[in-house]
Amino acid sequence: MKITLKVWRQKNTQDKGKLVTYDIKDASPDMSFLEMFDVLNEELLIKGEDPIAFDHDCREGICGACSMVINGKPHGPLQTTTCQLHMRSFKDGDTIVVEPWRAKPFPVLKDLIVDRTAFDRIIQSGGYVSVNTGVTVDANEIPIPKNIADEAFDAATCIGCGACVAACKNASAMLFVSAKVSQLAMLPQGKAESKRRVENMVATMDAEGFGACTNTGACEAECPKQISITNIARLNREYLSSKLTSEYVEA
C-alpha cells in the first residue's frame, strides 16, 4: 500500500510545531498503524533525521499509552486503541493526518507525545478506597450481586488514554472521571467515602483546566473501551446528592 502521511512535528513544548509530509511506499495491510511508524522511523534514522516520537508500550490495547489523533479522530477510524488499528482499515493511496491529543491540560512534550499527568492527579484526589494493606476480612464476606459487579467492571475497564478528552470540543474529562467515580460508588467497598470522592475528583478536574460536559457524547463514541456516558449521568447524580447532603464542608 502507498500512503501519504502528514504528521505533527514539534521539537518540545515551547516549539510552535507543524505538519510534515512523509511518503510511505510499501505498507502491508497486516501492519499495525504503529508498526508503519516503526518502519518510517527506521528510514528517517538512516537518513540522519530525528524519528517521530510517539507514546506506546504494551501494543495490546490495554496500557493506554498510545494516543494519536488520526484523520481528526482519536485512535483513528475504529473504536479501538491506535496500537490495535491495522493498515487494512485504510485504502491504497490514502492521505492520513496524524496529530497529538489536543487539550490545554495535555501539553505536547514532543511530536505526538503529550503530558497526561493531570489524569494521575485526578485519581490521587480520590480515585481509591482508603484501605491499608493487611485487611483481614475474607473476600467472600462482601457478596456483590453479579449485575452490580459487572457494571462496576464495565466502568473499571477505562485505560486512562485520554481519547475522551481529545474527542470533546470542550476537552472535558467527564467520561474518565465518571468511570472511576461510578466503579467505586456502585461497589459496597467504595460507598463509605463516595461523597468526598466525587467532590474532590470533580474539583481537581476543574482545577486542571478540563472543560465542562455538554452531553454531546463524542467521548463515548471514541472510547476504545466503550465506557458508557451513563457513567456521566451517575457522576452528576452522585455529585448533586453529595452537594445537597454534604458533611464535608471546607472551612
Binding site: V129, V137, D138, A139, N140, P143, A149, A152
Partner: peptide, 22 residues
C-alpha cells in the same frame, strides 16, 4: 489468600457468581 482479600477490599471487580460470591 490475603492477596485476594486485599484486592477485593480495594474495589477490584473480580468475576462473581449470581449469588454474589467470587
Amino acid at each position: 489468600t490475603s492477596i485476594i482479600d486485599q484486592c477485593v477490599a480495594q474495589g477490584v471487580p473480580f468475576a462473581r457468581e449470581y449469588g454474589g460470591l467470587l
